[in-house]
Design a binder for these strands. Structure first.
Lengths: 138, 138
DNA sequence: CCTTGAACCTCTAGTGACTAGAGCAACTAG
DNA sequence: CTAGTTGCTCTAGTCACTAGAGGTTCAAGG
């Protein structure tokens, strides 16, 4: 049995965030001491670890709720869990693709402007003003 | 002279977003008709284009404010603009690196679970529950 | 000139996933 | 027993919008 602070240290999830998860229904309301303080056990620590891991992987609170729901009903869960993970994977890949495009444009912009300009026109500002200078689209 | 709707069509920025930018001080308050409707000119269209482009590149409203500020004071602007762009670039690179790590873990998880399981344990759920199965850290 | 319907106006509130702060109560180490 | 840390609830703030209510103005067709 440990306090919310201890749980926080064990999992790396901040105290107010744990309370937030409880409010959102991701974590069940735990036991309380006589003095109304939360007390957690091993099962809760594991659950919070699951949530933390999924959040780190970019799953939304909603998606995590669905995954937990599936976990509690192990029949037909695997296919749906796979679907959620696949969706997550595709959205991560989209983000990577778009950030990679941005990276190439930003580095082009950054290189163009040496920072101590002979130029009376700043390349950074000009590039941002004029989309036509982009080599990629977005 | 065009309306907010026309400006929206020209730039691809939604109407409520244009009003929001005005409220935030990114766009100046434009002229109005007698009936109190906004009317924009070429300069405003260009400015909004600048803002749109910078937002698409992930610059925050605050950073864009700073860039516009620099644009209005062309002395010593280039170095500072470069700095803002470089900061932006490094944060984009960090995001790419972390998403790439997530991608490899997610695809590993997805591959592990065929979706129509012989397994009585779902690999997706198990992987999320057990961080120790990760090959990368996060 | 008049009507109709789209586009416009302001204002408030909601989104997601927290984070910060106020003001108070309870636990724990010395 | 007391001091200091940790806990409690509640409200409000963050960012960059987005949605909706309830009302006004504009432009085109008749």
């Amino acid at each position: 049995m440990f306090s919310i602070g201890a749980l926080s240290r064990h999992t790396g999830v901040k105290v107010p965030t744990i309370r937030y998860y409880e409010q959102m229904g991701l974590m069940c309301a735990p036991e309380r001491t006589e003095g109304n303080q939360r007390r957690y056990g091993r099962a809760e620590r594991e659950r919070l670890g699951f949530i933390k891991h999924a959040r780190d992987l970019g799953f939304s609170i909603e998606a995590i709720s669905a995954l937990i729901e599936l976990n509690d009903h192990p029949d037909r869960s695997c296919a749906e869990a796979s679907e959620i993970a696949a969706y997550q994977l595709s959205s991560v890949r989209k983000k990577i693709a778009s950030l990679t495009r941005l990276e190439s444009e930003l580095s082009r912009i950054s290189d163009g402007c040496s920072g101590n300009g002979i130029a009376d026109e700043c390349y950074v500002l000009a590039s941002l003003a004029d989309h036509a200078r982009c080599e990629t689209d977005h």
